[in-house]
């Protein structure tokens, strides 16, 4: 089993819903976003335009962040998730240099967003229950909502199908641009989409074999050539 995701660039409207859902789920400290919106200028005047895509940790099959970590704080699970054990991390930042996607984040400041209080949501570390104070001065990253996937164990719930056990970003997308599932299963929805829509990963030349695939739009403008 290898968890993965597709993001349909034809459907995505760039509404930031997934970005905010992730922020809500994980209550990440100020300035840290496990999920961001990437903007790119394509073409030249007068046909230049701006395209966008949500980006996050790609939970690569060959993650360059794992071998470099001197403490083994960063590790890869059998289901493909790349996670950080914050209790082992020394905050050296080496993994951040290894990730070509810039999706590892250093927790400089773990207090809340407001000067005078920590909200109850911040205090409990969002729905994911992160202890951000314990994670201060370490490196953190997207977990593919590992805490939600864990709820599926011993139940008939299926990640990517049942909302309770599906990553928050996928659940919230109003245009259903994202699909989550098992990349190792050739009959899974994500595998079929990648196959049928010629899904492509970000920076394939980096050789990391990402688990997040983008589905190209079926209409291509001249500017994007």
């Amino acid at each position: 089993m290898r968890w993965g995701m597709t993001i349909d660039l034809q459907r995505c409207t760039g509404c930031y819903g997934c970005v905010i859902a992730c922020k809500q789920e994980h209550s990440t400290p100020s300035g840290i976003h496990f999920r961001r919106m990437l903007f790119e200028e394509v073409g030249e005047y007068p046909t230049a335009r701006r395209i966008h895509a949500p980006v996050q940790c790609n939970h690569c099959a060959e993650p360059p962040c794992v071998p470099v970590c001197p403490t083994r704080a960063t590790y890869q699970r059998d289901d493909g998730l790349v996670l950080v054990d914050s209790g082992q991390c020394i905050g050296c930042g080496y993994c951040m240099t290894a990730c070509p996607y810039e999706h590892r984040h250093y927790v400089d400041y773990a207090a809340g967003h407001f000067d005078d209080c920590v909200t109850p949501h911040e205090a409990r570390g969002g729905e994911a229950g992160h202890d951000w104070v314990a994670k201060q001065d370490t490196v953190v990253k997207c977990t593919f909502c590992e805490h939600r996937l864990a709820r599926a164990k011993g139940t008939a719930l299926v990640p990517g199908v049942d909302r309770e056990v599906t990553p928050a970003c996928v659940n919230t997308c109003p245009s259903e641009a994202m699909v989550f599932g098992d990349l190792d299963d050739p009959d899974s929805h994500v595998s079929r989409l990648i196959r049928e829509r010629n899904g492509f990963p970000l920076l394939p030349e980096a050789g990391t074999k990402p688990s997040v695939f983008y589905l190209p739009a079926d209409v291509m403008l001249d500017a994007d050539t």
């Binding site: 980006v55 070509p100 996607y101 394939p204 980096a206 190209p216 994007d224």
Partner: peptide, 16 residues
């Protein structure tokens, strides 16, 4: 870091 691209044309070209 490396520049990133989600250019549809570039992605399609890679997929093709």
């Amino acid at each position: 870091y490396r520049p990133k691209s989600v250019s549809l044309a570039a992605g399609l070209a890679r997929a093709r």
